[in-house]
């Protein structure tokens, strides 16, 4: 099916997908470097304990929790199971040498606790549990879990904001102007067909959020010769990187800026250079903030329309492993 409009749409979806994958990779790198998970968990625990830094410190130093951290110098673990939290908190409040099943010791410990927030919460839990140790423990776990659900919400919102900021940064760094890209694709049938070829190859890969396998066995007779696939460094293939480089970048603007500085007649001033890209950048940034999975699905839909229906041998559900992968 020869439809230039559709081919331009495929080309744009493909570029958005590649740039979104870059955003995802950078976002995860940042989260790893800044230990975002641990920071959010720490924020949640601080709130749970009513901002009591001393109690929080005791909790993190408790053997049940300390052993979960990556190292002794880590702020806190990346996660705390609810049962470990309940055990550590009961142990700290009851005091050394007291049984965790001793409700009287827990009540005595609560009287000595300066933190009104935790004392109030634990007293309410004790009353609600009729002093049954197993029930107390269960209610503390529920209390922790409910708070961690909120932490998950904070983290999600933070990740969305980060994704939007990264979308803007990558759009500007790459000078990915949707209007300019569409114009390039519309006027160059050669570029369009090259993009379609690359887009087809990408659409055959797994959806970005799908659970990808680690390896494949290219030769069925060699079960010890597995080959890694989709290793993290290879978010984009070499061909895709080349294609992206051909469509984006600042080369033309650099030349125009140099010409303007040299006083060449008809050269646009810098503010004009920026102004002509503003709409295109805005469109690209909005598109990237939607995320890679959306553009993967959109690209697939466009490819299916272009191919006038799905090929009979094409797997419908790409989340399932293809032959050869485990």
């Amino acid at each position: 099916m020869n439809m230039p409009v559709l081919d331009v749409a495929i080309g744009l979806s493909f570029v958005y997908l590649l740039l979104s994958l870059m955003c995802t990779t950078v976002n995860e790198m940042i989260a790893g470097v800044f230990k975002t998970r641990a920071r959010f968990l720490d924020k949640g625990v601080t709130r749970l304990l009513g901002g009591d830094d001393d109690l929080k410190k005791q909790l993190y130093q408790h053997p049940m929790i300390r052993s979960l951290a990556e190292s002794d110098t880590a702020l806190c673990p990346s996660y705390i199971p609810a049962d470990k939290f309940a055990t550590a908190l009961l142990d700290i409040v009851s005091g050394p040498g007291k049984s965790l099943a001793d409700s009287a010791a827990l009540r005595d410990g609560l009287k000595l606790l300066k933190n009104d927030h935790v004392r109030g919460a634990l007293t309410a839990i004790l009353d609600k549990s009729n002093n049954d140790p197993a029930s107390v423990r269960l209610h503390i776990q529920q209390w922790f879990d409910e708070n961690m659900d909120r932490v998950s919400g904070w983290y999600k919102r933070n990740a969305q904001v980060n994704a939007a900021i990264l979308a803007c940064v990558i759009t500007l760094l790459m000078n990915a102007d949707t209007v300019h890209l569409a114009s390039l694709l519309w006027t160059s049938p050669t570029l369009r067909s090259a993009m379609i070829e690359q887009a087809h190859a990408r659409s055959q890969k797994a959806r970005p959020e799908a659970l990808l396998p680690l390896v494949e066995y290219p030769d069925k007779s060699k079960p010890t010769a597995s080959r890694p696939i989709n290793v993290p460094e290879q978010a984009l293939s070499q061909d895709e990187k080349s294609q992206l480089a051909a469509l984006t970048g600042w080369q033309r603007e650099r030349q125009e800026f140099a010409a303007w500085r040299a006083g060449q007649e008809g050269s646009p001033a810098p503010w004009r250079l920026i102004a002509r890209h503003l709409l295109g950048w805005l469109l690209t940034a909005i598109a990237l903030s939607i995320g890679a999975p959306f553009w993967f699905d959109t690209l697939n839909r466009f490819m299916n329309i272009r191919n006038a229906g799905r090929a009979p041998d094409e797997r419908r559900d790409k989340t399932q492993p293809a032959a050869g992968v485990v």
Binding site: E28, F85, M148, L211
Partner: peptide, 11 residues
């Protein structure tokens, strides 16, 4: 990203 979020709250 969804998996990453899931891993956040091990409780």
């Amino acid at each position: 990203r969804a998996t990453f979020l899931m891993l956040l709250c091990a409780g």
